[in-house]
Amino acid sequence: MKALLYLNEDLASSIAIRYADYLCSAADVQLHIIHIEEPDSRQQAGTGWVRRTWESGMQETGAQAVKRIIRTENVKCHFAGPPKIIVGDKEFETLRELRMGGFDLYMEGHIDTSSTDDFYRIVSSKLYSQAPCPTLMIKNLTVSKTAAIFLANAVDYQRLVTRFQDLFHNSKFDADIIYFKSSEQSELSFMDVSEGGSILKETEKLLKNAGIAVNKTSVLCGTPEQAGDFLRNYAFVAANLPVRKSLRAEVLAHTPASVLFC
């Protein structure tokens, strides 16, 4: 798969580059790096030579920052070409790069916070909602090779499985299918798989037909916080991109695991 990783010189990117390194060891990934220097409105310089010189300076600053983080993190994976450093609006430039470059996956780091508002702000951004490929929100590192296929009532499981399969059918990842039911209770509980309805069987069938091993299928019953915490040990949680606030989206907001939006 051809993947684009956004890097900055911060904690989120420090985690993201190491996660990408791990992903490269488990799947066939052609990794490209992008960094965008966003000038604030006061920094906008004139036109012509002045503008060109100013942009070159900003690009050089960005290039040095990316070089530092790659050197510091000392990752083993190989990059497909030098990092691309662009001066401009992050969302606009990233979307353009994804479209023009024919990428299969976009990855960036986001530190897990206790605020669901932060999560909703990110997933409702232009970048996430208009991305032409799945996006991987990297929150934390992992050692697992099992992904969680996250289902709930009325999710588009066919789209989810198809996208997951396109990315990971020849990888070392296997999958667990997790169906979430919301309930206010003191501890998370597991229900009989029949509670998940036909969607569980259909998803399992699609994954098996795609040659992806399914370890187990579970129906979780609890609060979004409890379910989010339960998902913490997975390599990532594959889910539909939430289009509105919901309890399902809250699970994804609360989980410390990385989330693959399909």
Partner: peptide, 27 residues
């Protein structure tokens, strides 16, 4: 920025000891 740098160091400290750690930021 200095807090972020410290958290990167802490995360590395544990990862080097083969301890997986999740990072979370709280207001």
């Amino acid at each position: 920025g200095d807090v972020e740098k410290k958290m990167v160091e802490i995360l590395k400290y544990y990862n080097e000891r083969e301890i997986g750690a999740w990072i979370k930021l709280v207001d």
